[in-house]
């Protein structure tokens, strides 16, 4: 029987778990609000730059960074999946079962959010930012 993790390890593990489950969703939400807000409002002002940066570069960053965060969440979800598929002996069955279900949900949703972010990124390659 393995030794039980201490409170700090539990806290870190718990945060990692929630990052796996919600990371992609939050990254996508931030991505969407950023790209929409920046695009619509900058173009409404008749500009195609924000300060010194071209609008396209800013939107590009708002695509790439959330995509990377989502990949991270996907990896964390994969970790939870692995750790719950062969639990060590003596661990309570219910948390493991619940963790495993959450891992399935997390892997799928991170993949899904990554797909959405990437599809939005493809549009950035095709369309000029302020074309109406």
């Amino acid at each position: 029987m393995s030794t039980h993790p201490g409170p700090r390890a539990r806290l870190t593990g718990g945060l990692l778990f929630w990052y796996a489950v919600l990371g992609g969703a939050i990254a996508w939400a931030v991505h969407l609000l950023a790209v929409w807000g920046v695009d619509e409002l900058t173009c409404a002002g008749g500009r195609e730059r924000i300060g010194a940066l071209p609008l396209r570069a800013v939107i590009g960053a708002a695509v790439v960074l959330p995509a990377l965060a989502t990949v991270g969440a996907l990896l964390a979800a994969a970790l939870v999946w692995r750790r719950t598929s062969h639990p060590p002996e003596g661990v309570d069955e219910r948390p493991v079962g619940r963790g495993r279900m959450a891992a399935v949900v997390a892997i799928w949703s991170n993949l899904l959010f990554l797909t959405i972010i990437v599809l939005g990124g493809i549009a950035l390659l095709v369309l000029p930012p302020c074309l109406r």
Binding site: S2, L16, R83, T84
Partner: peptide, 15 residues
Amino acid sequence: MSVRAATGTEALTTE
């Protein structure tokens, strides 16, 4: 706290 403990089954399924 070790990385190993924090990424173990029990820590990841903390209530």
